[in-house]
């Protein structure tokens, strides 16, 4: 090989190496934004939201002959005024959701949106200014977990859903 060619190869090698190094560095610096923390929080969110919903559905509604919350949710979806209480089941459900949420999710400083789909029952956390935290219409909101708890409707006519979204 001629000397000049060797030099060229060497230079090419250096340039390629430089580029590679730059690429790696750039990729590395982008991840610096606490990737571990993000994924950790997400993992925790998923676990908490699903266990919360399962427990919520099974909790016995007070003074209702031992019926679980799922049953009350069904009554709300189906607008079944004959179920247990006088007044609207959805109002009762809203109140019970709020009671529960204030000593669990709110206390933990979690941003969430708990709702019974297809109804006006909804509890959303608010930030310091009183604005809603976790409304999906807001595209800047990053929903990290949103499992649903199924509500079996009467006569097997389908399912309703209690959704708990947590966002960051």
């Amino acid at each position: 090989m001629r000397r000049g060619q060797t030099e060229m190869i060497g230079l090419v090698f250096i340039v390629v190496a430089l580029l590679l190094g730059l690429l790696v560095y750039v990729k590395f610096s982008v991840i610096v934004k606490n990737p571990a923390g993000d994924l950790v929080d997400r993992a925790r969110d998923v676990q908490q939201t699903s266990s919360f919903l399962v427990a919520l559905k099974e909790t016995t509604v007070p003074n209702c002959g031992g019926a679980p919350m799922e049953r009350l949710a069904r009554a709300c979806i189906e607008n079944d005024r004959s179920f247990c209480i006088t007044g609207r089941p959805c109002d009762m459900l809203q109140e019970l959701f709020e009671n529960l949420v204030k000593v669990t999710l709110v206390k933990q400083g979690i941003k969430f949106n708990l709702s019974l789909e297809g109804t006006e029952v909804m509890v959303v956390s608010t930030d310091v200014n009183g604005d809603l935290d976790c409304v999906s219409a807001d595209r800047s909101v990053d929903i990290s977990s949103a499992p649903v708890g199924e509500v079996v409707l009467s006569g097997g006519s389908g399912k309703g859903y209690i959704r708990l979204s947590m966002c960051r």
């Binding site: 991840i31 990737p35 571990a36 994924l39 950790v40 993992a43 925790r44 998923v46 676990q47 908490q48």
Partner: peptide, 13 residues
């Protein structure tokens, strides 16, 4: 970070 993620996912799990 994988270790930390695994550790904390392990925590939740």
């Amino acid at each position: 970070s994988e270790a930390t993620i695994m550790a904390s996912t392990m925590d939740s799990k």
